[in-house]
């Protein structure tokens, strides 16, 4: 572990993903899943990556983690800078070190992330034995401590249970414990509560927030749920067809979205706290990633679109304010200024 730390620059941004490109080369053609995604993350901060299914959120996370399904997936460009070190340039054995120790990830489906044939206690203790060189007894104590921290009742007994013996919510807690075991500085949570009921979702989001706060950990929350985002995010990156089309602090984006897609999304969701009128509809469908429209990828669905949007040149990322970016030719019109 010490050798990879050498190149790390403690003054550099915790995580900076710069112009990331990922393709899937399959028989059906080349799917351009990520097309120049850029974002950054600071310690203690929560960045939400928001987008509809298929827009490239999970693939982005997999590329950052170095767990892309490859082939068919290939990173074709960009950098993933962790404290200034480009992870994409590291040898696989160094990346593996990063995965457990520096950047960890949790998923929607905890069962597939846990090994079904080992007890939860064994899997946790293994992490401490392998990466921290702990004795069996010490590792077991740590495992219990960790399960306690994620509020698994009767942790002492439950370490002997297998993953399938836990309920959905409890399993999610076990997975969080596994991810946090080696004190990562970055946690990527890919739709961590999408499969859960709201009361359990609230428990898990509360737990994540608390653990993040205690550890001053950077959290990337990948989700399609604009309610969850409003509750927990500091900043939001809205993704469409493999690109971040808008990036903004959470209060700004909900109060005044600058990109037509963000605006349309916010107007299309029903509200809990009042009975609204007819929902605004975004016409059509998200594009196929093997055939992304030229110009602005959103133009076939956009109410603001004009000829320039259909041209070759895609809209550049305009800086609207500090920390606010949107990729649209008509930002002023959308903002109403």
């Amino acid at each position: 572990m010490t050798d990879i730390s050498v190149g790390l620059d403690p003054r550099a941004t915790l995580l900076h993903v710069d112009d990331l490109h990922v393709e899937f080369r399959t028989r059906d053609g080349v799917a351009k899943a990520v097309n120049g995604a850029s974002f950054y993350l600071n310690p203690g901060e929560t960045l939400a990556i928001l987008g509809e299914s298929g827009c490239g959120k999970s693939v982005t996370a997999q590329a950052v983690m170095g767990i892309l399904d490859s082939p068919p997936g290939h990173v074709t460009g960009g950098r993933v800078l962790y404290r200034g070190v480009d992870l994409l340039q590291l040898a696989e054995k160094d990346r593996r070190q990063f995965r457990a120790n520096r950047i960890a990830m949790i998923f929607q489906d905890a069962l597939s992330a846990l090994n079904p044939v080992y007890t939860v206690g064994f899997q946790l203790a293994e992490l401490f034995r392998k990466h921290r060189g702990m004795s069996r007894a010490a590792a077991k104590v740590k495992a219990i401590e960790l399960l306690d921290q994620v509020r698994i009742p009767a942790a002492k007994e439950r370490i002997n249970d297998y993953p399938h013996q836990f309920s959905g919510g409890m399993r999610q807690r076990v997975m969080i414990a596994m991810a946090l075991a080696l004190d990562p500085e970055v946690l990527i949570a890919d739709e961590p509560t999408t499969a859960l009921d709201v009361t359990v979702q609230a428990q898990i989001m509360g737990l994540l927030a608390e653990l993040q706060h205690q550890r001053n950990m950077g959290l990337i929350l990948i989700t399609h749920d604009m309610g969850v985002v409003a509750d927990v995010a500091d900043r939001i990156s809205v993704m469409y067809a493999g690109k971040i089309v808008e990036e903004a602090p959470v209060y700004d984006i909900y109060a005044r979205p600058a990109h037509p897609y963000t605006k349309a999304l916010l107007e299309s969701i029903p509200r809990l706290d009042h009975k609204g009128r007819e929902l605004n509809v975004i016409r059509g469908l998200p594009p196929s990633l093997t055939d992304i429209p030229q110009g602005c990828a959103f133009h076939p669905r956009c109410g603001y679109a004009r000829d320039i949007c259909r041209m070759d040149q895609e809209p550049p990322a305009y800086q609207i304010a500090a920390h606010r970016i949107a990729r649209c030719h008509f930002i002023r019109e959308v903002l109403g200024v």
């Binding site: 959905g168 749920d225 409003a230």
Partner: peptide, 23 residues
Amino acid sequence: LSAVPVPDPRLRGHRDHIVLEGD
């Protein structure tokens, strides 16, 4: 109702949160 996230960050910290224990 208290567990449902509302897409409005201004309500953060101003809502009544009732956390249910267990499953």
